[in-house]
Amino acid sequence: MLAMEDPTLHQLRLLLTLAEELHFKRAASKLYLTQPALSQQIRSLEQRLGVQFFARTSRRVELTATGKALLPLVKQVVDATENLRNAASRSAIGDTRLRLGVCENVAPLEATRSVLGAISGLYPCLGPEIHVFDFAEQMTALENGKIDAAFVYLPVPEGLHSEPLTTEPRLVAVASSDPLARRSSVSLADLADIPVVSLASDMFKAGRDFWAADPRPDGSAVRYTDHHVSRFESLLSMASFGGAIAFVPSVAARLYPRPDLRYLQVRDLPDCTLGVVWPATDHAKPHITALRDIARQVHSQAVLAGSVQNLTRLLELESTYC
């Protein structure tokens, strides 16, 4: 009798995707693989099982009769493995509900929603419970144990562990009546004499400094408004009145379009990173471990998506100029 080698779960997942797409290029793109890599894995799977799942021609890919017959069994194996993993995770986690904090400006973000959706789908026993805070309240809630973790833009105070989710540029928000509003971009030197909207005084210093770009590259200190804000909408409103500016994540231009504001690129301003954070002392707790794993998966998908977008832009440039 012919000895067969067991297929890997990874190969079975690739098989299901190709069976759904029936197109190597589309399937490879969906899986973030090259076509040769996908073809090699499918050939290895067929050799291990001693059957041919697909009939390939220069124009199309079709499931063979054997492939159609075995496909439901392949799906059962993949589903059973997923169910086993999820059951084991739920058993380890127990009935602990995950209490998560969000501020209004991060609640609608795709990365935030992806993490929340994954928690609900993979670990329904975790909840999660969502608590909405302003900037300062959220850090206090983490410190006093009112919440287990929070979605925040980095940096964060010492004693908190962070897992990055996405990175994006920072923009400057200026009043639409400001002469700078006629520009498409500025430098920090162009903003040197304009006060920055001051965040709540009880926010930790490193965070306040980061979101004010204080000090500036030449070492000069930043001037602040006398009025302090603790919510994102208040931050934007203060900038819209004129005479002050606010540095914000680039996604704000899409989520908070306002006729009284303009969002400008700042050529020499470093990017910002959204992350999920929790007390470092809780790092080994099962529900935090589950959150960490999900955050890392969301981050890796964001990095892959960004790499694909960058590659697409490069290929478009090559086709235009080469």
Rank of each mutant, 00 (worst) to 15 (best):
235 L>I: 02
234 S>F: 01
237 S>E: 13
238 M>P: 00
263 Y>V: 00
268 D>F: 06
238 M>L: 13
242 G>H: 08
233 E>S: 14
277 V>D: 11
262 R>V: 02
272 C>Q: 12
234 S>L: 05
273 T>C: 12
274 L>S: 09
257 P>N: 10
234 S>N: 12
270 P>L: 13
239 A>E: 01
248 V>G: 01
270 P>I: 13
273 T>Q: 11
258 R>W: 01
230 S>W: 07
232 F>W: 03
231 R>K: 12
234 S>A: 15
242 G>N: 13
262 R>A: 09
266 V>R: 13
236 L>G: 07
254 R>G: 12
276 V>G: 05
245 I>C: 01
273 T>N: 06
269 L>G: 07
235 L>S: 05
255 L>Q: 14
242 G>D: 07
238 M>F: 05
268 D>V: 09
274 L>V: 04
268 D>K: 11
249 P>D: 08
263 Y>C: 01
253 A>W: 02
279 P>R: 15
258 R>H: 12
246 A>N: 03
246 A>G: 03
251 V>Y: 14
275 G>L: 04
270 P>G: 11
264 L>M: 09
244 A>N: 07
244 A>E: 02
235 L>C: 08
264 L>P: 03
271 D>R: 10
260 D>I: 01
269 L>A: 12
253 A>G: 04
274 L>R: 08
241 F>V: 12
241 F>E: 15
262 R>D: 03
235 L>V: 02
270 P>W: 10
270 P>D: 12
247 F>K: 01
264 L>V: 09
239 A>K: 01
243 G>T: 06
273 T>E: 13
230 S>Q: 12
264 L>W: 11
244 A>L: 04
281 T>L: 12
280 A>Y: 10
242 G>V: 06
279 P>H: 10
252 A>V: 12
233 E>T: 13
257 P>G: 09
266 V>L: 08
275 G>N: 11
233 E>W: 00
279 P>N: 09
230 S>P: 02
236 L>E: 04
266 V>G: 07
229 V>S: 06
280 A>K: 09
252 A>C: 08
246 A>P: 02
237 S>P: 00
258 R>D: 14
277 V>R: 09
280 A>F: 11
252 A>D: 04
231 R>T: 14
229 V>N: 06
257 P>D: 10
231 R>Q: 14
239 A>F: 00
278 W>R: 07
242 G>W: 11
255 L>T: 05
229 V>Y: 03
258 R>G: 01
271 D>L: 06
252 A>Y: 04
229 V>W: 05
236 L>S: 06
264 L>G: 03
271 D>E: 11
241 F>G: 14
245 I>W: 01
252 A>F: 05
273 T>R: 10
274 L>N: 06
277 V>S: 10
252 A>W: 05
250 S>N: 11
266 V>S: 11
241 F>Q: 15
247 F>N: 00
257 P>K: 07
262 R>Q: 13
